[in-house]
């Protein structure tokens, strides 16, 4: 049909405030796929939404588009399942409301797993820092109806469409080089506040713990934090666990910089 938008210009300002977020998320996703990522799709309350995202990428509607690895993960024990599946460089994509505790728990661990996070939803937005990319529906739309009225599928359809546009720009598909070190303090080089997840519980007599970070498995000193349960999140600085990250807080840039 002809573009009805031309006859209804009032739509032009609606539903598009997240266009810049979508653009940034699409380029980030294309870069990750280009480097070999798998996208793990979750939607605990609306599993069909995550299945739709997965089939969108694996079996594209446009003939000739690249088939990309995307997988729906559902069922009980979501965080445990993701912990086993996710590899550094992967992507986690959730379609759920901001108050979904399972998604929030998986996403706060994502930096320790080396995963990029994308959160698609409607209604009240997730807390700042809860995901790397937040693709949120119009604030005026009814969040209870968002999974049914097409506003969420519009967002993941566009994520797919724009990600494929990025593949036509091979020069932009590699992550830019990090900032060059200058001056006496460099956050990157000083190993400041990297998030880590404890792999195995430690006891009173243990001075070290095996942890998982975005770079892989390593051993860190736990003198400052004491015994740790498996799955605990800690901030690691210069080979030491310096603090335990409580549930409900996110590894936001503010927190990482507060060491």
């Amino acid at each position: 049909m002809t573009d009805p938008a031309e006859s209804t210009p009032t739509w032009a300002v609606e539903g598009a405030d997240d266009a810049d977020d979508l653009a940034a998320a699409s380029l980030a996703l294309a870069r990750r796929f280009n480097a070999g990522a798998t996208m793990w799709c979750v939607a605990p309350q609306w599993p069909e939404q995550a299945r739709h995202v997965a089939v969108e990428f694996v079996h594209p509607v446009i003939v000739g588009s690249r088939a990309l690895p995307a997988v729906h993960v559902g069922g009980p024990g979501l965080v445990d399942a993701l912990r086993a599946l996710v590899r550094p460089g992967d992507v986690l994509c959730a379609v759920s409301p901001a108050d979904d505790r399972e998604v929030a728990d998986a996403f706060r661990r994502a930096p320790a797993w080396g995963a990029l996070t994308m959160w698609i939803g409607a209604g009240p937005r997730p807390a700042v820092g809860a995901a790397d990319h937040v693709l949120w529906s119009d604030p005026e739309s009814d969040p209870a109806l968002a999974p049914y009225d097409g506003s969420l599928s519009l967002r993941y359809h566009m994520l797919w469409e724009l990600t494929h546009v990025c593949f036509d720009h091979p020069g932009l598909l590699t992550e830019p080089e990090g900032e060059v070190c200058e001056g006496p303090v460099c956050i990157t080089c000083s190993d400041e506040g990297r998030l880590a997840e404890v792999v195995a519980a430690t006891g009173e007599l243990d001075a070290e713990a095996t942890v998982r970070t975005g770079d892989g498995i390593e051993t860190v000193d736990t003198t400052l934090v004491g015994p740790l349960p498996a799955g605990a999140l800690v901030l690691v600085h210069a080979g030491s666990a310096i603090t335990v990250v409580d549930e409900g807080s996110h590894a936001s840039p503010d927190l990482l910089g507060s060491t």
Binding site: D3, P4, A5, T8, W11, A12, E14, G15, A16, D18, A19, D20, L22, A23, A24, S26, L27, G150, L154, H157, M158, E161, L162, V165, C166, H169, L172
Partner: peptide, 18 residues
């Protein structure tokens, strides 16, 4: 590219709603 992608997203959102 980001400017172009965002413009494309806006156009798609307009088309979807209408």
């Amino acid at each position: 590219l980001l400017v172009d992608l965002a413009a494309s997203a806006r156009a798609k959102a307009v088309l979807s709603k209408s």
